[in-house]
Design a protein around this nucleic acid. Structure first.
Lengths: 192, 192, 192, 192
DNA sequence: GCGTAAACGAGACGGTACGTCGGGTCTTTAA
DNA sequence: TTAAAGACCCGACGTACCGTCTCGTTTACGC
């Protein structure tokens, strides 16, 4: 499926500079202080070039995050629910570096402020992550590792609720111990 | 300790008009479109009057929310953990009307964008709600209704994580059934 | 006719700074290089303040010119046509300093580019100057100093045509000798 | 002096499309709204193609005008000054169709805004027109049809001043009656 | 017919200015 | 002292053109 290229090709250099500028600025000054103007300035790029490819600063940050976090990891499938859960959670927690956590928080915030972005964030980000976890749980259920009446969606909410709450309220750390605790609790809930 | 009043007294009318304007505008156009200028305009008040009493639009919304939700309800104490939990959760869920949910989401968003506000939101809002639930749980533990090794903070995270996640991601409703399910799950976790 | 003054009064300082900046910039870089942004910058004033009072850069320049040239001189009335004409033309030519000539040329140019400005320029500038000269001629006619069939409008065109042509094409100087020659020619035309 | 042609020859079609687009746009929206981008768009031509052959939009319009007006008419030479003058003025006035008048006005305006173009406009346009009229007058003088002390340059100024003033200020029509009146007046001036 | 070379369309690029909006502050009169 | 009104400086918004560039494609000529 070849794309007919006509006209000057997009500058990969500019694209990378923009994403990097956005990530750096969010980390340094916070998403609240981020502006399209500032991104362009720091990336040594014209404003038009930013707007040509992204219409919202949130979209720039989302792409920067996806670039950085290689968020497309598939669902672990080691044949045992407990192991898969642990793996999924540890991997997720590991991806939430301070820099990435800041971007995640910013995007969740933006989704509250801009309904249009909220839509794309729900569909293109939140739902995908839910899907991965749900797959793990479904495989576990089909193997009989959790009671058949378990409400998988509720369990997924349980996991992401805890993760997001920590990211957003920042009252405690997201670390491996926390990951394991969440995994353990989920199994408890899934079995009783 | 009486405050010496000199000069023209503060206009209670203006204060109420401002809070109402803020709440209405958030509901109608979303917090993202809220501006101090817009609040003043709609309240038929000068910008200066808004700034004299609140320095951030988030503060206006927070006061509007507290005014509306009378959020200072004390922890229920019916003598039994299960009952107290149900009560607390049903009451909380009932308070999260669409209008209030929208303001809550907005404030959580603002806390991600403005570190100064985040501080006051954590201390003056999030922590207080945590405290109420913790009190309920502690009374339950002292009555021996949950295992002594239970990690109360984790349980509190569990509850608020679920609540906030639903408020922010809006993928499912916050209703009485959900409240009861969360209460039930908490007890399961607290006992096993 | 008192104007009720409410709110902060307009800053006379800012107004003067803007007019001066505009005049200076036109003289230094030419009207073609003049921008609202540049005026604001040089006047140490916000763009908004410029736009609050003038909607076009041509309007700024026009006011600057009127301020500088004190263009509201009344028609000379010394009792003799020849004298009045000489006076009028010498005064006009004297007002066309290089700096003012540059502004005049710019405004005539702008009138060609912006129909809305053209309207106000014709009415508020060109027509007024014509009126003054016409008054001089009419007084002369009523004194019998020119033939009664003389086409005054044509004579006015004759004078301003010569003046504007020199200003715009810059192929020769506008000086006192030229003024006197124009006055002389007009009398020739007016009598034969 | 043959120009070595190597490579693809210039597209006459594109050239014509560009000139036509420019003329049409000036007529429709005014020169002020004319942009190189707009010309290219309307001519279905790439911007580069426009820039390859003209560096200023004024140059495009100038060429469009010369194309349209076939402005290279030689000085009339019928053996009598009055006749030649009438012919010259009638022909000039006839060439100033509304469309052409608009372009002429635009170019004179541009000459006020861009010193570089002013130069080429003075030399390549204004001076040539002056030359034609001067030739007519000189022939008249050598035939003794005007007094020998007549200032020919002033007379040329007189004519073009009137013409340009009407084109630019648009307060009255340019028609045959006007042409004849100017011719008559010139003779009056030239003889007295 | 094959290579060379300029012209062409498309459209991305770094810039600059546009005119507007809101942020906070300040300056006035009135209550 | 508070309030309303509104001007002020500031800086970002999103857009339009500027003039340049980098592509792939087309069209001539000279070998």
């Amino acid at each position: 499926m070849e794309t007919r290229t006509v006209g000057r090709p997009r500058s990969e250099e500019a694209r990378r500079a923009i994403l990097k500028a956005a990530a750096t600025l969010v980390e340094r000054d916070g998403y609240g202080a981020l502006t399209m103007e500032g991104i362009a300035r720091r990336a040594n790029v014209s404003k038009q070039t930013v707007y040509r490819w992204w219409s919202r600063k949130a979209d720039v940050v989302l792409e920067a995050l996806n670039e950085a976090a290689e968020a497309t990891a598939p669902a672990p499938d080691a044949g045992a629910l407990e192991r898969d859960l642990r793996l999924f959670l540890r991997r997720t927690v590991a991806g939430a570096t301070p820099r990435n956590a800041r971007m995640l928080a910013a995007l969740m915030a933006e989704a509250q402020l801009d309904e249009e972005f909220a839509e794309s964030f729900r569909i293109g980000f939140l739902a995908r992550r839910r899907e991965v976890l749900r797959e793990v749980l479904e495989r576990g259920r089909s193997r009989g590792e959790l009671r058949s009446s378990a409400d998988l969606d509720f369990l997924v909410d349980f996991v992401f609720g805890l993760l997001w709450y920590r990211i957003l309220s920042r009252h405690a750390r997201l670390n491996r111990a926390f990951a394991d605790k969440v995994a353990g609790s989920l199994l408890t809930l899934a079995r009783h």
